[in-house]
Design a protein around this nucleic acid. Structure first.
Lengths: 186, 186
DNA sequence: CAGCAAACGGAGTCTGATTCACCTTAGGGA
DNA sequence: TCCCTAAGGTGAATCAGACTCCGTTTGCTG
């Protein structure tokens, strides 16, 4: 459907400008930036933003698609470098770390991990599968408990990311994640 | 300051009506009920609601004050009946259970547990202290790990409650809580 | 029963996301 | 090259919901 006609040059240009503006804002910690402001920075009107992205969330998702893919790649990389158990531990902390970098990423991770929004279906599935691979490897090695799915772990992490508004969030998140991880071990 | 003058009869009546309406709604699962609607059901105008409660959150807090106290009481009761470890496990699951009953309670618990909002300071402190007692008993008995505060546990639970919007929430929450609990053991 | 501070009512404000009726313009074709 | 048309753009307006403001009403004390 998207491929019916190639998309006009100015349209593509504006789309890119919007993504760039949003990316810069989110990664810069301006998680709560308003759609009007994103549009302004991209040099277009809000209407244009909404022509390209269904909702504010959809734009967020688009921005973090790459980021998510990179993170999932890290899961497999860890799997090749460490014992499954250690790979999982590092991956979990990596997620927390990312959530801690800028509020934006935390918002995205939370949305990806702890909601059912269909907007994040793809990202969620991708992440859950990466976690499944880590968990399965750990189970095979006998170091991780059986019967826990990537989805469950994802939700737990999502919950932790949901409390990022509080003071001293990161330390607390790391502590909780570590405790949770210990619970996953045999 | 509140005791300077006894509060007019109609004022007290309205305050009770508002609390009753809010309680009924929250416990009935209407977590997202609007302030206008609460006021309407109580037979007053929004202005009156705001005369009695600083913000929507403050009303929520008021509604759950009793509930929180009851829950904290349960912690001590468990402590007298079970081994510290088991008491903690039951208490954690009790919190999840309460959050699962109605969305309203989950919202309240989340706010109490995972935010810094001063509105919930009292409830949060109360809960954290109840958990501290459980944790301390477990540490003394040698069955729970040292160095984890009630605050941390509270936040972890708060995170879990924050994902209540998703399908199959309760099962997931119980599973996550159980894993987390296992992580707390020696 | 008068006087007045305490309470009340509810329209209006504010913040932000989202929409929509109307204008612009890229770009394929004669 | 120029024209036409539909894709694309615009931004004022709408909507939602929490919260405020101030003129009006009313419980209570002297």
């Amino acid at each position: 459907m998207t491929s019916s006609r190639p998309m006009r040059a100015d349209a593509r240009r504006n789309r890119e400008a919007l993504l760039a503006a949003a990316r810069e804002a989110f990664l810069g910690g301006e998680a709560e930036i308003q759609v009007e402001e994103i549009a302004r920075r991209a040099g277009v009107a809000v209407g244009t933003l909404y022509r390209h992205f269904e909702t504010r969330e959809a734009l967020v998702e688009e921005v973090y698609r790459d980021e998510v893919a990179t993170l999932c790649g890290a899961a497999d990389e860890h799997l090749g470098r460490y014992a499954p158990e250690e790979a999982l531990r590092r991956f979990l902390l990596l997620l927390v770390e990312h959530a801690a970098v800028g509020k934006g990423m935390a918002v995205a991770l939370e949305s990806i991990m702890a909601t059912d929004s269909p907007v994040f279906d793809e990202a969620r599935t991708q992440m859950a599968q990466a976690l499944d691979r880590l968990l399965a490897a750990g189970v095979a090695a006998g170091t991780l408990r059986e019967g826990v799915g990537g989805r469950t772990v994802l939700r737990a992490l999502g919950g932790v990311c949901g409390m990022r508004a509080t003071a001293g969030w990161k330390d607390e998140a790391v502590r909780i994640t570590t405790i949770f991880f210990d619970g996953l071990r045999r």
